[in-house]
Design a protein around this nucleic acid. Sequence first.
DNA 1: CAAATTCAACTGGTATGATCAGTTGACCAG
DNA 2: CTGGTCAACTGATCATACCAGTTGAATTTG
Lengths: 241, 241
Amino acid sequence: MFEAVKKQSLSEEVFSQLRERIVSQELKAGDELPSERVLCELLKVNRGAVREGMKRLQQAGLVQVRHGGATTVLDFQAEAGPELLANLLLGQDGQVQIAVARDIVRMRQVLSPAIAADAAIRQSSELADKLDALVEQMQHTQETVHLQYLTFEFWERLVDGTGNIAYRLAMNSLRKAYQPVLQLMTFILEKSVQDVSAFQALAGHIRRGETEAAFDCAKTYIDASSEAIYCFLDAYEQGST
Amino acid sequence: MFEAVKKQSLSEEVFSQLRERIVSQELKAGDELPSERVLCELLKVNRGAVREGMKRLQQAGLVQVRHGGATTVLDFQAEAGPELLANLLLGQDGQVQIAVARDIVRMRQVLSPAIAADAAIRQSSELADKLDALVEQMQHTQETVHLQYLTFEFWERLVDGTGNIAYRLAMNSLRKAYQPVLQLMTFILEKSVQDVSAFQALAGHIRRGETEAAFDCAKTYIDASSEAIYCFLDAYEQGST
DNA sequence: CAAATTCAACTGGTATGATCAGTTGACCAG
DNA sequence: CTGGTCAACTGATCATACCAGTTGAATTTG
């Protein structure tokens, strides 16, 4: 019902303002940023705030800072990491960027079966127990939102179960990207989420270390739910044009 | 022959020192960092430098800062993005972390065939021309290092060709992670890199929009080269214990 | 005593102004 | 043309205030 009120610090404001201008190509790769002292005046903040914002831009791979020289804008498509997806998915006006959404769903679609297989190959009963417990909870709930929460939780545990840190970190970025629009997905995934038997089967395959079966099972499920999202996105795209 | 001399700013030093302590679990998730003023004294630097380092830690998803409260360490496995892989791959002492290397290679292995397929489905002659040009260059070089460069370039163009920003950003992080150890991979991939015909075939499939063939072709190649790396990593692991 | 309030002592956030340090380009001597 | 000098940029570091939110213990209040 309630949620934390937003409060943005000055350095965050500096960061997000410049970030928006970079991802919107208003500031192109190779462009030189105004000097810190000039930015202070333009943004009406002190230099520390500007510098702190710069450090974040630098960490995000959006600008290159050279002591003594000008700060230049980098090509974010070639330099930034997936953590930028969260900012790309929601444009300046808070509008969902369909193309980005499709790309995120696609990447998740590609990774998921492999994650299931890699989790299965470990044959960890500890993981299998967790998954079974989640399936158990799925079977005893009617609430779609709770069901959706459990399925996402299922996938998160699966990622953990692979022990693959690259998967883990990549999925973190994807998760943070679609986190803000989760509620939009509730009714899109209403159908596929209710197919508890798929999760039950998948959990079984993973417990028994059946990598190929786990792969196929995950693929069947994720392909279906991805397709549902694609359809929705297509329709949404049509509707807004 | 020559390379840029390294020069680390104070805020970067602060950032990397704390980052190392976090990823090494020396600072565990939930722990509270010393206050900024205390860190100043411990690190013998100005508070501005500490704060700038903090902003980077925050951007990297390693700490949570609350105005008025203490700054706490986050669970980087649950919060950080793939850009952290570069730091995880090379441990504190500069030693390559085998497990992380395996995970990175595995993720690349999983994504690559899908990337090839997604690039093929677009049937962009512009992309196909670029790929053909690269294959052309491959055929006219004997230098292994140059050949390796061209193959990596081939994959980069392929990723661009998908138009999928999620792939693009994910691969950026993977690339930045293995960039520092590229020269180590030269002789590991010597064999698989020399198979120019595979790239030629793949480029053809992509030009003709043969998604499944492109997928299979890419999979065959990437599975082989991944296997070569796994073997090396296994041997390396044995050798160092 | 128990609950509410107050308040001092933290914490991070912002501001100012000075100084150090690397880069650039114009200018000048060889 | 080469190399050096220097002034005018750029970012990096520093010191010192003060503002603002949080915390918890002391205090008041019921």
